[in-house]
Design a protein around this nucleic acid. Structure first.
Length: 724
RNA sequence: GCGCGGUUAGCUCAGUUGGUAGAGCAUCUCAUUGACGUUGAGAGGGUCACAGGUUCGAAUCCUGUAUCGCGCACCA
């Protein structure tokens, strides 16, 4: 027996060394795996943002993915887990701009586009290498030879190709539409990048000619020359659609036009409203419908424009009070009420969103097109379909299943509320919109030959590029071997928070580009909270750094703590005590090994098993089948607990205790049988525990005399069922 | 407002197709030079949020209520 078993298990000494050995073996790459492996099993790592360091959520994701990939690798699949990082355009640029502002007191405009992008590239390079090493620390058995970055040359080619194909199919268009404008970040953002903050404001009832209208935003009302009511509202039956009347307003009389539309809720307020098409999505649609004028009232920095007369140049907040003051003097304020509502703010900058009309690029999710090839059930090639329908069908047809299942409803609910997806951003870091202009000419996708072309200034929403992650990583648009073999992928494992941001966009892009689903299963994990149930945050300072935890307790312990009892889609709490418990477990296994080795020196491998021992062997085989079924059904929280429970409370507490009595007795047949049994059980539990605690199991395996090669590729005892 | 979840032991949470309520931690008792610096055996502790219903049988299925959390839409 190796003398190292005489001391407690030391994760610090072991884990780095084992990881290096795995990496050098080349076995993370499915091309190098032993035996004939016709069936692929693929997971694309959700690329962590290249903005900093890994947090507990990443650690959980990496652990779940690694358990699945190790399980399937041992089961004989050509297992590919492809790692990568995300350039996360807005987040990264915001981060670097902040750093520069702090250290050099310079803005991006001081630096210029080229220099800022160069600085960001530099930052990202450093950040990516940090992330790479952190992914390794968790024990992730991913194929580094295929590593990808959402903003490298290959991915840029894929993005430009995708843009061109969607443009040619009529699904991408440029238009003046209402967008979410972030005056602080000076960019548009998508609906999903908005966070709502509850605020208490005033709600003003203003006299507008013969009407009383309600508004929370008097500062937008200067241009309001349309007054809208429901056509069936008896109170206003005397007014006809299109009728004009002159009303006294903020800066004097204006001509108002009556519009009748069913969009107005007669039961809300007075049942009458005026509209501001430039600064409200609902009003914009009304204006489009009736062909009304639209006028900008607030500029790109949140200040009032000349239309506001004496209020021009004022910030919104300042103007609001003064306007009400003036209206009040003019006797036009009917009453003021308190009002609680949600204000839209930009997730990244905290700026209050100002809806604005802007010339932007959009993806149209309701326009019909046809796929020339489809493997998605319910969608036939050549038959007209919309992206919205595609998104729905992929999940409705069970081509994709979501774990836990109830997120299906959330997904459908989101699709039903989907609006055109604004994909252009006014930031400098990221894939630049692949469109070039020359006079009246426009070129899409790639820079055409010839002089005088100017590229669109905007960049693309980062989710536009990560939408193609499952296949751009495999070489698309080239028809590579990898693409043919590994796509569609098997599982997409991610946080439920980005179901829409990312998961839906991948379904959309994969469906459009390949006529395939991007993955067969979506496994959504919950948020990891602290012991008090709070979200980890910088301001609270309650973060548990996974890397620190691993240093202290080992990656194996951290992995188990993240897995056991943590059901998909449910938030869970993390405390050092829990992690410590599993460090103890690693040491328990270490000592079980020691006991078995000490008592089986003279083991005769050919000795027959007694009936009792045979039954004990069968018991573990049954457990193996059970654990396999749990893993196939994504019940990792049960599988991990079951093998833990067996090792500690069955193997150690019962079987080893019993064995002490047997070894102390006179029955040589029972002794011989028990030696064989214990060695056999030890080997089996190492295999079954390996996906969960890869380091300590591999280390023990390497130190057993009768084992060869890596535990990492030892055959799993239960073969894959044909259906799975 | 619409939708989705949670409510089970002091705490954190499991409970897969309905079949005698479980784990870890905590508490208490006992044992212990032992494979274990990190041990074992045992005990106490639960009207499974509440009210109805279906069923031979409900933590589990159905209806409703309360309460907490989340998502979406936000209404002029």
């Amino acid at each position: 027996m190796d003398s190292k078993f005489l001391k407690p298990y030391n994760s610090q000494e072991t884990e780095g060394r084992i990881y290096e050995a795995w990496e050098e073996s080349g076995l993370f790459n499915p091309d190098n795996l032993p035996g004939d492996r016709p069936t692929p099993y693929t997971i694309m790592m959700p690329p962590p943002n290249a903005t900093g360091v890994l947090h507990m959520g990443h650690a959980l994701g990496l652990t779940v993915e690694d358990v699945l990939i190790r399980f399937k690798r041992m089961q004989g699949f050509a297992a590919l887990w492809l790692p990568g990082t995300d350039h996360a355009a807005i987040a990264t640029q915001a981060r670097v701009e902040k750093d520069i502002a702090k250290s050099e007191k310079k803005s991006r405009h001081d630096l210029g586009r080229e220099e800022l992008v160069r600085r960001i590239d530099e930052f990202v390079e450093g950040s990516r290498s940090t992330i790479r090493s952190q992914i390794r620390v968790m024990g992730s058995s991913c194929d580094w030879s295929r590593e990808a970055f959402t903003f490298d040359e290959k991915r840029n080619f894929a993005v430009n190709t995708m843009f061109k194909r969607m443009y040619d199919a009529g699904l991408i268009y440029r238009g003046h539409r209402i967008v979410n404008w972030d005056p602080k970040g000076q960019t548009t953002i998508s609906d999903d990048e908005i966070v709502y903050e509850e605020r208490k404001d005033k709600f003003y009832y203003l006299k507008y000619g013969p009407f009383v209208i309600g508004t929370a935003r008097p500062e937008t009302k200067f241009g309001d020359k349309y007054v809208v009511m429901h056509p069936d509202d008896a109170r206003y039956a005397e007014y006809a659609h299109g009728q004009k009347l002159t009303v006294e307003w903020i800066n004097g009389p204006i001509e108002a036009t009556i519009i009748k539309d069913e969009a107005v809720d007669p039961g809300f307020g007075t049942g009458v409203m005026t509209i501001t098409p430039w600064h409200s999505a609902v009003d914009f649609e009304l204006a489009e419908k009736h062909g009304l004028d639209k006028e900008q009232v607030i500029d790109w920095y949140g200040k009032l424009l000349p239309i506001a007369g004496e209020f021009a140049g004022m910030k919104i907040g300042e103007a609001r009070d003064k306007i009400i003051e003036k209206l009040s003097e003019k006797g036009l304020v009917d009453r003021i009420e308190d009002y609680t509502h949600n204000v839209s703010t930009a997730e990244r900058t905290g700026g209050v969103i100002e809806p604005q009309i802007k010339l932007q690029w959009f993806v149209d999710t309701e326009k019909e097109f046809a796929l020339d090839h489809s493997e998605i059930p319910g969608i036939a090639a050549g038959v007209p379909i919309t992206l919205k329908k595609l998104l729905r069908t992929a999940v409705e047809s069970s081509a994709i299943s979501i774990v836990p299942e109830h997120f299906n409803k959330t997904y459908f609910h989101w699709i039903d509320n989907l609006r055109p997806w604004c994909i252009s951003r006014q930031i400098w870091y990221g894939h630049r919109v692949p469109v070039w202009y020359r006079g009246e000419e426009i070129a899409v996708g790639f820079l055409p030959p010839g002089e005088g072309w100017t590229q669109d200034e905007d960049t693309l929403d980062t989710w536009f590029s990560s939408g193609s992650w499952t296949f751009s990583t495999l070489g698309w648009p080239e028809a590579t071997k990898d693409l043919a073999k590994f796509h569609p992928t098997d599982v997409l494992e991610t946080a439920y928070e980005i179901l829409f941001f990312w998961v839906a966009r991948m379904i959309l892009m994969s469906g459009f580009a390949l006529g395939q689903v991007p993955f067969r299963t979506v496994y959504l994990h919950g948020i990891i909270r602290d012991a008090q149930g709070r979200k980890f945050s910088k301001s609270l300072g309650n973060g548990i750094d996974p890397i620190e935890v691993v240093g202290k307790f080992g990656a194996d312990a951290a992995r188990m703590a993240l897995l056991v009892g943590n059901t998909p889609g449910t938030d869970s709490r993390m405390s050092e005590d829990k992690i410590k418990g599993y460090k103890h477990f690693g040491n328990k296994l270490w000592n079980i090994t020691r006991f078995i080795l000490e008592n089986t020196d003279e083991s005769d491998p050919n000795a027959p098993l007694t009936d009792t021992d045979r039954a004990l062997r069968d018991e573990l085989d049954a457990l193996a089948a059970d654990i396999t079924a749990d893993l196939d059904a994504y019940r990792l929280y049960l599988a991990s607990e079951k093998i833990y429970h067996y090792i500690w409370h069955r193997l150690a507490d019962v079987l080893l205790e019993e064995s002490k009595v047997i070894f102390a007795g006179e029955d040589e047949t029972a002794k011989a049988s028990r030696r064989v049994l214990l060695v056999s059980l030890l080997r089996s539990v190492l295999i079954l525990l390996h996906p969960f605690m890869p380091f300590v199991t591999e280390e023990i395996w390497q130190n057993l005399e009768d084992t060869e090669g890596f535990l990492m590729v030892a055959p799993w005892p239960v073969p894959a069922s044909p259906a799975a």
